[in-house]
Design a protein around this nucleic acid. Structure first.
Lengths: 110, 110
DNA sequence: GCCGTATATGCCGACCATCGGTATATTCAT
DNA sequence: ATGAATATACCGATGGTCGGCATATACGGC
């Protein structure tokens, strides 16, 4: 799973969100580092939906604009949990090796 | 940075390794989940070298076979440290959100 | 009244890291 | 002698992401 995909799932793990809200949440989560392009986002949303990791929660019309809300499925929740565990483990291994080289880890920024 | 690239850097963070040893270390690190293909590895090695993140440490001939050892540069060390911090932070955010949904994290496997 | 920005979804072509297969060559086990 | 392991390297295909564009409404500043 690539980073943008992981971030989209993480955004939806918080609460059901519509596309634009996902872009904003991802930007907030990463301190502005990752600004998802519309192309990336909607392609990812379509792909995740056809893979059964997310599904449409509801649709709303706000100020005559459509808002399509997505939410994680049980399968998506499991995938995100597995991916998160993987990330943690890999980070821990790299961190340990860097520590042996004399690199110290303080606060981490996204 | 994609996962295979991160794993290659992590492998070299342990000690200078030649290509085949990187493949083995990555497989060991991930519990056999990631088995780097030759194409992926040598392309990554070339790319990381031209980006200045790794460099050739030494070359040896063992049983009439060439072994080209690579090692991290100072720049590669910094990149890996930054990437590791990023992974940690993102994993922590996802974990917290999953926890709020009632998902508990026990031991993590790579 | 007009322009730029923000909100909101969506399509499309290009890029490039990775994948999977192939080639080459030696050593070791069956 | 056949296959697996060791070891490096090239090549075409795949596919997720990037960047740009289109469409449409609302809001703030000038």
């Amino acid at each position: 799973m690539r980073e943008p995909t992981f971030l989209v799932l993480t955004a939806l793990a918080g609460e059901p969100r519509h596309g634009y809200a996902v872009i904003e949440d991802v930007a907030a989560m990463t301190g502005g580092r990752v600004r998802l392009r519309a192309g990336t986002l909607y392609a990812a949303l379509d792909r995740l939906r056809s893979d059964g990791l997310i599904e449409v929660d509801r649709e709303e019309i706000v100020q005559s604009r459509l808002r399509r809300y997505y939410k994680l499925t049980a399968s998506g929740e499991r995938s995100l949990a597995a991916e998160t565990a993987r990330l943690r483990t890999q980070a821990a291994i790299a961190e340990e090796r860097l520590r042996l080289r004399g690199i110290t880890f303080g606060g981490a920024t996204a």
